[in-house]
Structure formats: structure tokens, C-alpha cells
Computed example of a mutant assay.
Amino acid sequence: MIKPERLCKGDRVAIVSLSSGILGEKEILHKYELGKKRLEEKFGLEVVTMENALKGVDYIYNHPEKRAEDLMNAFKDKSIKGIICAIGGEDTIRLLPYIDYDVIRNNPKIFMGFSDTTANHLMMYKAGLVSYYGPALICDFANYVDMYDYTENAVRKMLFDAEETYEIKKCDYWTNEFISWCEENMNKAKKHLIDEKGYEVLQGHGKAAGKLLGGCLDAMPMYIGTDIWPSLEEWKDKILFLETSEEKPSPDLIRYYLRNLGAQGILGAIRGIICGKPQGEVYYEEYKEQYKMVLKEYGREDMIVIYNANFGHSEPIGIIPFGIECEIDADNKTIKLLERVVE
């Protein structure tokens, strides 16, 4: 896997709308401005907003080719060092016919986002580029009052400092509060709850290591069978990371999705699983039971499963890098990246 170069103060980063076009809606433009300001003032980056990113929901929906054009142009532009998604959505899959994997492979740079952006990460994976399942502009960089320190630290340590190894520590707080996105709420802070659970080990003992591959579990059915879905051989010996969206899929659906991974042979091929905290801790205990049930059905009661990690849809979030060697330790309840994630 190709690692892109680390970010430095003064670098240019592109903003893209690859699924939902909400960034360009009048009532959300203040979030765009706030996120842009944070990237500029906190991280010293120069923000480049791609041509179609602010054209609104209807235009973005009706023109998947223009969304893909923005992505390809961001990769082609030698002056751009990173690409940050505005937000996820449910429509990234329609970009597939317009993606040039050679362009991605020959112009490696940081790409980051989560949720339906899983599809884009699988595109990067197919092209052989390490990418970063992490904060998006609207949700995280433009969080009202300030960015979460947990999220900011992950961006700095992984993408700027390029540390040789990195322990993904558990965040000791979380929130289940949603503050409506409107300018009147810009000074409202979310209430934090203490996370007393820490990482939970659902099963397994000792350590397991492998390269990271995964994403948003309830978005994956859209990608299975397409040319970006990894082959069974590509899943071999991986550490699978999974989280669930704001749709809060029922425990039954989680069971169905996991059984599909079992039927494909993926659960038999991987070395371990990292599970994200469900948003708002809805179905927190119920999801645990589904994981244990399905893994038992497929004879994988031996596999290490670490639960309640901070990535994806539960705030605050960190970064999980696709294609990077990771060690999960059930006895010590740790998640460690065994190599730097950028050059």
C-alpha cells in the first residue's frame, strides 16, 4: 500500500462533496465557513473548495459525474496534499463508473471521511493507497464551540507528526446529544458523558495483528459485488473494523450483515475485529450479542473482538487508517498501529 506524504503547515487541502450535497445549502454554509476556519487557524492549512462541492443537494444528487470529477481533479492537482470529505450520505456508489484508479495510484495524497465514504475508501484501497476513516468537515472540523480534543489530537499525531507507532487510546468521554445545525446554535456545547466502560473485549485472548480494512457496516451491502469490494484473498489476515451509522440499524439487521460476511468467508479469513461505539449507545448491549452469536455460528469464538472504539458515527471520533498494520491486545485492552500512517 502506498502511504501519502504527511501534512505540514501551509499545505493545501481540498474539500469535496462526494455523496450528500448538503454543504452547499444556505442554512449549512455557516458550517462550511466554520470548518474552513478551523482547518486554516488550528492546523495552518490552505483550504481549496472543489468546483462542485457547494452546488447543493439537488445538483450533487443529479450529477455523480461532477462529484467524481471533483475527486479526480483534486488528485490530479499537484499542489493539493489532502482531500477531506464534507460529509457522508448514501449515494457514493454512483461515482464508480467515473473513477480512474491510475489517477489515484499515481498521485497519492491524504483522503479522509467516514460513513458512506466507506465506498471512497474502498476505491482508494483498490488503487493501493492508504486512506483515513476519520473526521469530516461538517460533522467534526465544524463542531460547534470547538473541535473535540480527541479528534484534533488524532489528526495532529497521525497526519502531521507521522509518529513511528501510535496507540489508539479510548476516549474517556462521549456525547449522545445532537445540536441542530443552525447559526443560532453555534455557541451551544454538547454535554459530555464519562465513558466508564473503556474498551470491552467480547471474546478472545492474547494478541492479533494484521492490516486494517473495514468501514460502515450498514453501508457495505451497497458495495458487495461491485469492483471495489475486496476479494476473499484480500480479506485474509486483516483486522476488520466496523461501525454503524446514525440510522441505528436493528440488532436483526446487524446479524444479517454479519452473517453475510460469514457466508462470504470473510469472518473465517480475518484475524480480529474492532467495533465502534454505536451512536448514542443505542443497541449497545444488543449489538454485542449479535457479534458473539454470529462468530459462534461460523466457528470463530477464538477471534479477538474489541468493542466500544471511537470512530465513525459516535462522537468524538479518531482515525482508523486503511491498510496499516495494527495490533489488538485482548489481555491489555489496547489497539496499536505498528507503523507510521503517512510518509
Rank of each mutant, 00 (worst) to 15 (best):
E5M: 06
R6L: 10
C8Q: 15
K9N: 02
V16T: 09
L18T: 08
S20E: 08
I22Q: 06
G24Q: 06
I28M: 15
H30V: 07
K31L: 08
E33S: 11
E33K: 09
R38N: 12
R38C: 06
E40M: 10
E41T: 15
K42M: 10
K42A: 08
K42W: 01
G44T: 13
V47T: 08
V48D: 08
A53C: 09
L54R: 07
D58H: 13
I60R: 01
H63Q: 15
E65D: 14
R67L: 07
L71A: 04
N73W: 00
F75L: 10
K78G: 12
G82P: 09
A86Y: 02
G88L: 05
E90F: 14
E90Q: 07
T92H: 00
T92K: 02
T92N: 05
L95R: 08
L96M: 13
L96P: 07
I99S: 01
D100N: 14
Y101N: 10
R105W: 00
N106H: 06
K109F: 14
K109I: 14
F111M: 08
H121P: 03
H121D: 08
M124L: 12
K126E: 00
S131T: 08
Y132M: 09
Y133P: 09
G134A: 05
G134C: 06
C139H: 06
D140E: 14
F141T: 03
D146V: 05
M147A: 10
D149P: 10
Y150I: 12
A154Y: 04
A154N: 14
A154E: 04
M158E: 11
L159H: 04
D161T: 03
Y166V: 04
Y166G: 02
Y166E: 05
K169D: 12
Y173L: 03
Y173Q: 05
Y173I: 02
W174E: 01
C182S: 14
A189Y: 02
A189R: 00
E196L: 09
K197G: 01
G198V: 11
A208R: 06
A209G: 01
K211P: 04
G215F: 03
A219N: 04
Y223H: 10
G225P: 13
I228F: 05
P230S: 14
P230V: 09
P230C: 12
E233C: 14
K236A: 04
K238Y: 11
F241H: 12
L242V: 13
T244I: 13
T244F: 12
P249R: 00
R255D: 15
Y256A: 15
N260F: 00
G262N: 02
G262S: 03
Q264N: 01
I266E: 00
L267Y: 03
G276M: 09
K277Y: 00
K277S: 09
G280S: 09
Q290V: 15
L295H: 13
R300L: 02
D302F: 11
D302Q: 06
Y307G: 06
N310D: 14
F311Q: 05
S314H: 05
G318W: 02
I319G: 03
P321H: 04
F322E: 11
I324Y: 03
I324T: 04
E325T: 10
I328N: 04
D329V: 03
A330P: 12
A330D: 01
N332K: 15
N332H: 07
T334Y: 08
T334F: 13
R340A: 11
E343H: 12
